[in-house]
Amino acid sequence: MPSWATLLSQAFNGLALGSLLALVSSGLTIILGTLGVLNFAHGALFTVGAYAIFVAFQYTSSFFLAVAMGSVFMLVLGILLERVIVRLFYDRPHEDQILVTYGVGIVLVEVLRNVFGSHAQRVPVPSWGTGVTEMGFLMYPTYRLQLIGMVAAILLALYLILYRTSLGLVVRAGIENPGMVGILGIDVKRTFLVVFAVGCVAVGLAGMLYAPVVAVSPDMGATFMVQSFVVIVLGGLGSFPGAVVGGLIAGEIISITSAFNSAYSDVMLYGLMALVLVLRPQGLFGSEGRV
């Protein structure tokens, strides 16, 4: 049995880990909720985000400027993908959507591999984020602490877009009743474009902010994608608050399990996912039958 201090620090770490998972998953869930598309290119888009900041940082040498440039790039990429490919699939079956986004994921990853090689690239921690912060019960990397704040700010911005704007109203109406939005004469296709692009930016931002922490390589996205599946199932498919809460729960599961035995953190995570699907399939914030 690990000590209380260990459990406490792992619980805190779970919060940090969970906030990132929440950001990674939020893009996936709003696209799923609004467009009804389960985006299998999600992991690849995360990777693209990480590479975007890697490139942008070399030119700007300013972390925030690089994030801004990277976000613009993700926005453009999202618009392109929606216009050229995803748009063709709104009236096709789920499995076709899954397949084409799966293909897009392969292409994105392989383009990165052929441009940058398979090696891990280095994105440094910004100068204001280096070092370790002493927090009494634990020492924690300063950048990761700042990360919690940055993620919270981005999630708040997403929340405001989704809940405090007319676009958000349409998006949420679309989640509740996709048919109705069309009947009301709202340009659904336009909404879809915006939501897909916003989803891409969200996951791209996750990739950018995470880049200084992880190894930036073409295959980095795969684990994140599968984990974000778990997160959105826990929270409820298509639910934004669900993704946030689901992310935190997943983070805590991974972290607390690690206090006992790290090797079991994945088994526990999928076990919980299976359990939720069996007992409360709609997740914490979802409603079944919609997707």
């Binding site: 799923l32 389960l38 789920h94 599968v226 599946f229 778990v230 199932v233 498919l237 994945d266 088994v267 999928y270 076990g271 996912m273 299976a274 699907l277 069996v278 399939p281 709609q282 079944e288 039958g289 997707v291």
Partner: peptide
């Protein structure tokens, strides 16, 4: 456990068990 669920929920539950 899975057949009671439909659509993406069914897909996800099979995925979860396979990963486990």
């Amino acid at each position: 456990l899975a057949v009671r669920r439909i659509g993406i929920y069914f897909t996800m539950i099979t995925l979860a068990f396979a990963q486990m």
